[in-house]
């Protein structure tokens, strides 16, 4: 039994940090975890992804088509991975867009958000969440990834309890950041619980 999470985002968004957070929580829940990281030239401002594999596996990158959940820190990055993962993959999508330079340089605008989401929805279950906005409300835009971690916990795609996530946050962040991250996590968790209920979504 293995669970594979793919975190997709833009270099600098904290892709690695949220990957480590999910991994730490997985370890606290007594799972074996391996994670791939990307460092160096391949990061800043570019499209980046990190894999977290939970279960009895050795290599840190799963087979094509066997991703269970895509956590998209940015909507277009979610759509980029949509055709690269199997139809079973559930998408948690942060709604805050970041316009790629390739569009701006041609004076083109970011495509309409609903079109981006609809294209992902064509093949996948999508749970949208305005993590950046929630993070702003918590008082620190940099905790938006903990909002998404809360959302992941609510879906129960990973077999990790809410408490294990909270302990992982406590271990990973300093005292001031810890409180904001826990608040962000809780907001993401509650929002997603509400969303699943409201839309009568039952995930396997």
């Amino acid at each position: 039994m293995e669970t594979n999470i793919l975190i997709a985002g833009v270099g600098g968004q904290g892709v690695i940090t949220v990957g480590r957070l999910i991994s730490m929580a997985g370890i606290l829940a007594s799972h074996n975890v391996v994670m791939s990281e990307l460092h160096g030239l391949a990061q800043r401002g570019g499209s980046v992804s990190v894999n977290v594999r939970i279960g009895n596996v050795i290599s840190p990158i799963p087979e094509a088509g066997s991703v269970d959940c895509v956590m998209a820190l940015e909507p277009m990055e979610g759509l980029r991975y949509s055709p690269r993962v199997g139809k079973d993959a559930v998408f948690l999508v942060n709604l805050h867009p970041m316009t790629p330079i390739s569009l701006s340089m041609e004076e083109k605008e970011y495509p309409p958000l609903f079109s981006v989401l609809n294209e992902i929805k064509r093949d996948h279950q999508v749970i949208p969440i305005d993590a950046t906005d929630i993070a702003h409300k918590v008082g620190n835009v940099r905790v938006s990834n903990s909002v998404l971690a809360g959302s992941l916990a609510a879906t129960e795609i990973v077999n990790i309890s809410r408490d294990d996530f909270i302990v992982a946050i406590t271990k990973m962040f300093g005292s001031k950041l810890k409180d904001q991250n826990i608040k962000a996590f809780d907001s993401g968790y509650d929002f997603t619980m509400g969303y699943l209920e409201k839309n009568h979504i039952l995930l396997d």
């Binding site: 401002g45 570019g46 759509l79 390739s102 495509p111 294209e119």
Partner: peptide, 13 residues
Amino acid sequence: GTESLLVAPRTPV
């Protein structure tokens, strides 16, 4: 599958 036309390249900057 094929990549959506809405997806723009995002090379490192």
